[in-house]
Amino acid sequence: MTTTGTTRRARWFTTAGADPNADHQVFLFPHAGGTAPAYQSWAATLPSTMEVRTLQLPGRQERLGETPFTEVEPLLDALLEAFEAELDGRPYVLFGHSFGGLLAYRLAVAAAWNGLPAPALLAVSAWAPGLEPAADLARVSSMSDAELLARVAQLGLMAEGTTLDPATLASIMPALRGDFLVAGSLREDGEPAPCPVAAYCGALDPIAPPSGMATWEDHCPDFLGTAPFPDGHFYLFEHATAVQHSLNRHLRRLAARS
């Protein structure tokens, strides 16, 4: 079992200027191998009613010297501790893409198990419980670096045929491989999310197509539906603003209900 050092608040979640007057805290979870800057524009483009905090896992950028996690349970234990320190009583939203969606979902479940307030909204992009292609993808962790990068390229994360120099490979591969190992270690238990769920995906995604995202209906008390967008697994790169508008609409409608 791989572990890391301390769970210091400033290391796990980054902020682009905390705003205590915002109505909601919004926690963002990147894709496998991803980093906090993947969401660097969200703080500027989300409504001012949302304060953005982005997850930065061990093994990347300023945390490069820390060993990446390779199992889901120890990662969730450490993540929950860091996450609890971020909460300040305001309602909050969890949004994750792909591997980040898995983490956001399991963090919402862990928060409920440990007596913490449930999210006002769990928004999950390109991941759903029990998707067989996603489970198959987790097994690419056993591939060589070249095979793993080729598989990731097929999903649109980088151009196919891209070659990386040894220094870049050494900096990104442990985190990427570790994230796939974490995903592969998840054992589905059917536990429902303790809050409303909104789903997002690429219409051409081979891993999490719109039909697969519909499984969320069986994993939450209030499924708000799936919003498909053009493109594949990494549709979010081109359609982030539309997703942000959708999140804002969902929050306003949920607030009107209550």
Rank of each mutant, 00 (worst) to 15 (best):
S48V: 05
S48P: 00
S48L: 09
S48M: 02
S48Q: 12
T49Y: 06
T49F: 07
T49L: 04
T49E: 11
M50K: 05
M50E: 15
E51P: 04
V52D: 03
V52W: 09
R53K: 15
R53E: 06
L55H: 00
Q56K: 09
Q56D: 09
L57F: 13
L57A: 14
L57N: 09
L57I: 10
P58R: 10
P58F: 05
G59L: 05
G59R: 11
R60S: 10
R60C: 05
R60Q: 03
Q61K: 15
Q61T: 15
E62W: 14
R63Q: 02
R63A: 03
L64G: 01
G65R: 13
G65K: 12
G65Q: 13
E66W: 05
E66S: 02
E66A: 08
T67A: 13
T67V: 11
P68L: 06
F69P: 02
E71I: 10
E71P: 01
V72I: 15
V72N: 03
V72E: 00
E73T: 15
P74S: 13
L75C: 10
L76T: 13
L76V: 13
D77M: 04
D77P: 00
A78Y: 02
L79P: 12
E81F: 02
F83Y: 08
E84M: 00
E84C: 01
E84S: 10
E84N: 00
E84F: 00
A85Y: 00
E86T: 08
E86V: 04
L87I: 01
D88H: 09
D88M: 08
D88S: 14
D88W: 04
D88Q: 09
G89I: 06
G89T: 05
G89H: 06
G89Q: 06
G89Y: 04
P91L: 12
P91N: 12
P91I: 15
V93S: 05
L94A: 06
L94F: 07
F95C: 07
F95H: 14
F95T: 11
F95K: 11
F95L: 14
G96L: 12
G96T: 11
H97N: 05
F99V: 06
F99Q: 01
G100Q: 05
G100V: 11
G100C: 04
L102N: 10
L103E: 10
L103C: 14
A104S: 13
A104R: 10
A104D: 05
A104T: 01
Y105K: 10
Y105P: 00
Y105W: 09
R106N: 11
R106S: 01
L107E: 02
L107S: 04
A108H: 01
A108V: 06
A108F: 05
V109L: 14
V109S: 01
V109D: 03
A110P: 00
A110Q: 02
A112M: 08
A112W: 10
N114W: 02
L116P: 01
L116M: 14
